[in-house]
Design a binder for these strands. Sequence first.
DNA 1: ACCTGAACACCGTTCAAGT
DNA 2: ACCTGAACACCGTTCAAGT
Lengths: 187, 187
Amino acid sequence: MSSNAREDILAAAKRSAQAHGYGGLSMRDLAAEVGIKAASLYYHFPSKADLASAVAKRYWEDAAADLEKIWDEYPDPVERLLFFPETFRRALENGNRMCLCSFMGAEFDDLPETVKKEVQIFADVNVAWLKKALIATGAVEPDASDARAKAVFAAVAGAQLMARSRADISLYDTLIDGYRAAGLLPA
Amino acid sequence: MSSNAREDILAAAKRSAQAHGYGGLSMRDLAAEVGIKAASLYYHFPSKADLASAVAKRYWEDAAADLEKIWDEYPDPVERLLFFPETFRRALENGNRMCLCSFMGAEFDDLPETVKKEVQIFADVNVAWLKKALIATGAVEPDASDARAKAVFAAVAGAQLMARSRADISLYDTLIDGYRAAGLLPA
DNA sequence: ACCTGAACACCGTTCAAGT
DNA sequence: ACCTGAACACCGTTCAAGT
């Protein structure tokens, strides 16, 4: 199937970065998982920074595609918006992992410039989608939609972070319900 | 003044962990900052895990004391609650740092058990205070106060994380305002 | 009581060398 | 084209030794 080493590396690096961050991503461990030597990684990616940058870029590209699909699959604006937290829930389901870009947001100080840029694009993509989705519900004034979209994104990321720190996915659901009860998400 | 090496180590380690996390906390760099050799750190703390555990413990103890002070200084329940995000804002003001326990929440998988425990207590302390503060406003049903307190905590932590990842403190203010506008925090 | 140099097994990275 | 072993400067940690 995927005898493409470069793709294997990207996939394994993504999984690892979602659990251990940029700093915790070990080139030696990564190589072992893919079945090559650490030195061989540098044939595919000139540095750890370049690898992480490629991983983060792929990450937001995949997220953008997923969000597009959700947009089309949920014609009802409220249902669509309520489905958004599900994308963050899946990382928790997948071995208590978290959003790669949230983890790297914490590691901001130690991130290479190229990686920082991709991490920020991930937030941009999500916020832009949320803004459109909020406006579509008609419940938010267009003027307020940008601030509200950012608030929803930050709150959902925070819920994922808190749930991860207790390895408790039911806490994530409680938090999202709490956002709904408070009015941050439509009820 | 503080010729107490142990206290100097704790203070420097706290600052570093707020910027680089547990994994990014370097014993050699830390020693250099305190003015001793790395090996000497092990006279004061038997391991990096023990040091980090002591730092996290001190961190929630200080937070608990701060919250008590805020409680007394703000007799008005709504004003008191609105002041809560200020405690997280200060870390951003202080060199774009973040809550030590949020960072370590991301690093959950790689944290020693003793450190995990202290990190969770930090959340417990904040949630317990928020719960009391929410009930005092009378705007939240006691039944819903626990879920709401957790939601506020997670949302504020998420706002700090997102603002840090753009090194933009004004974004933090926008997000907190967004929470207010949406009804998560009292307006 | 408090600190140190030297050593250990790690890490990301480089590079000349292999096929 | 793709991979490797050996080496580099790092890291957390240990420990015997210093004062």
